[in-house]
């Protein structure tokens, strides 16, 4: 009798475990399903309304590239439990300096290298300052956001014409194609997937983000890992800065101004946990960026005011995070 009860209890436990795993798997594929639904909705309604699908897709890829590049790099930072709000202004400074070098030398390679170099340098500066002086990374990046913003305006007013910096169109035109953007994003994504899933770097970052104390006791050097995470994010920012300059060779203070915040939304739409740790996914950024772009394109078919789209984005943002966190039983309020 006792053995029977024990057997039933074990069976119950196994069933519960299976149920929890299935629930978790369903939750984890919600972002992918959402992206596919949005893509399908866009394609169906764009065809019905007679919009050009090829032009629409080009716009979607172009919009998604910037956000995806920045957000994919930022995944390294978020996974290890850090946070960076200065990515958008970092991108602008990198693009401006890259643009200046590109204009002066007429070389795309130097423009690319400058954009990446400056972005990595600024990104590493954030984490180094925070590490050396024991400052909260979050606060540090907020401060640096305003510093980089002011530096960008300073560059524009002192080195630009009419607060703008223009790169010769002839220089960037050969690269201003959808194929170039696809190659850029696929190449960077593959590199990040390799670093994140194949090398031990990704596992160490997840460990650090999930339990910093345990990670420390296991011999993970948190400061070094954080600096590496910021540097890798810098590469993504630099590529995004280069891509932005290629797309719009006339740079002003408002260039890419919303990328910094949109990348946060993209990460969440893609199913990335904001607290980082073991549940982090490298592909979330790409998925989220395309979901957002498809949503933008779909909404643009029906409404003309971008503010309606913003409201829908805000509502969806909260709903998606709520759905992803639905399984978590929290007694205390999150901080």
């Amino acid at each position: 009798m006792a053995a029977q009860i024990k057997k039933e209890a074990v069976l119950d436990e196994t069933a519960l475990r299976k149920k929890a795993i299935i629930k978790q798997r369903i939750i984890s594929i919600i972002p992918l399903i959402a992206c596919l639904i949005l893509a399908a909705l866009y394609l169906i309604f764009a065809s019905i309304k007679g919009y050009s699908i090829s032009i629409g897709l080009q716009t979607i890829i172009s919009d998604a590239t910037l956000v995806a590049l920045v957000a994919t790099g930022a995944t390294f930072i978020f996974t290890s439990g850090s946070f960076d709000l200065s990515l958008g202004s970092n991108m602008l400074v990198s693009a401006l300096l890259g643009g200046l070098v590109g204009s002066a030398t007429n070389s795309l390679v130097l423009m690319l290298l400058t954009s990446i170099g400056v972005a990595v340098l600024l990104s590493v500066l954030n984490s180094t300052l925070a590490s050396v002086f024991n400052l909260p990374v979050f606060i540090m990046t907020i401060v640096m956001m305003s510093v980089y913003g002011a530096v960008a305006t300073l560059i524009l007013t002192t080195l630009g014409k009419n607060a703008q910096i223009s790169v010769p169109m002839a220089l960037v035109e050969p690269l201003n194609t959808t194929w170039f953007r696809v190659i850029l994003i696929v190449g960077y994504e593959l590199l990040c997937l390799f670093l994140f899933y194949i090398l031990k770097l990704g596992r160490q970052q997840k460990f650090l983000g999930g339990n910093p104390f345990c990670a420390y006791l296991s011999g993970i050097k948190s400061k070094r890992l954080t600096i590496i995470s910021f540097a890798l994010a810098g590469i993504g920012i630099g590529l995004a800065a280069f891509s932005m300059t290629v797309q719009t060779p006339t740079l002003s203070a408002s260039s890419g101004s919303s990328v910094g915040m949109n990348m946060l939304i993209a990460l969440v739409f893609g199913g990335m946990t904001m607290s980082g740790g073991p549940k982090s996914k490298m592909y979330a950024a790409l998925l989220g960026a395309f979901s957002m772009s498809f949503l933008d394109a779909f909404m643009n078919i029906f409404v003309s005011g971008s503010w309606y789209l913003q409201i829908v984005k805000g509502v969806l943002f909260i709903i998606v995070v709520f759905l992803i966190n639905m399984g978590n039983k929290v007694k205390l309020l999150e901080r």
């Binding site: 409201i311 943002f317 995070v321």
Partner: peptide, 8 residues
Amino acid sequence: IIGLGMAL
């Protein structure tokens, strides 16, 4: 998250 969503 709530703050970002509500800001939008």
